[in-house]
């Protein structure tokens, strides 16, 4: 059983607190460097300011499994097992939430999960229509109809075989 010295408390934007093993929290580069700055201090609460609790929970879940799998498969096979877990992990997350999650992960600077979420978003929009991409990212089309038609015309081949959703 780890002692409380090995724990850190992460506080979400709503003020919700999460007690996490250091081994897990140290994957968040921001948390790691804040703790290094405050070495020796008894204050083990790190405020994550703008990150909502639901994303803090997701990030912790990911790295908890990451750390456990790494320990369990030290001899090899870690990457395969991690891939399996990542698939399950992503299945539980709503597609709209991926956007919030990627911003949270980017803010906390957690490279492994960042790559996973960016790739998941890219996969999600692959084969989607331009209209869907606009809606997904909340982007207003500022082209006139003529301008848009001209750009589409320039590379007509790229618009074959695209889903309507």
């Amino acid at each position: 059983m780890a002692s409380t010295d090995d724990k850190v408390i992460l506080k979400s934007s709503e003020g919700e607190c999460f007690e996490v093993d250091m081994a897990v929290a140290s994957h968040l580069q921001i948390v790691k460097s804040v703790l290094e700055d405050c070495e020796g201090s008894s204050d083990k609460v790190v405020s994550l300011f703008i990150v909502e609790a639901k994303y803090v929970a997701m990030i912790i879940e990911y790295y908890k499994n990451y750390v456990e799998l790494k320990e369990k498969h030290e001899e090899g096979g870690f990457e395969e097992k991690l891939k399996e877990f990542e698939k399950q992990f992503l299945e539980q997350i709503d597609k709209k939430e991926l956007k919030g999650l990627v911003m949270a992960v980017n803010y906390l600077n957690a490279p492994a999960l960042f790559d996973v979420v960016c790739t998941a978003i890219a996969k999600h929009i692959e084969n989607k229509s331009v209209e869907y991409v606009r809606e997904y990212f909340g982007i207003v089309n500022d082209f006139t109809a003529e301008e848009e038609a001209q750009i589409r015309e320039e590379h007509r081949w790229a618009y074959d075989g695209v889903n309507d959703d």
Binding site: V102, M103, N106, F114, C118, T119, I121, A122, I125, E126, N127, V130, V133, R134, F137, I139, V140, N141, D142, F143, E148, I151, R152, H155, A158, Y159, V162
Partner: peptide, 23 residues
């Protein structure tokens, strides 16, 4: 900056389409 991280993972065909998302 974050958008670049996502878009660089896309296939060329989709990126060419996505040029008409917005200016």
């Amino acid at each position: 900056e974050l958008l670049v991280e996502i878009l660089k993972r896309l296939a060329v065909k989709l990126l060419v389409q996505c040029r008409c998302v917005s200016k």
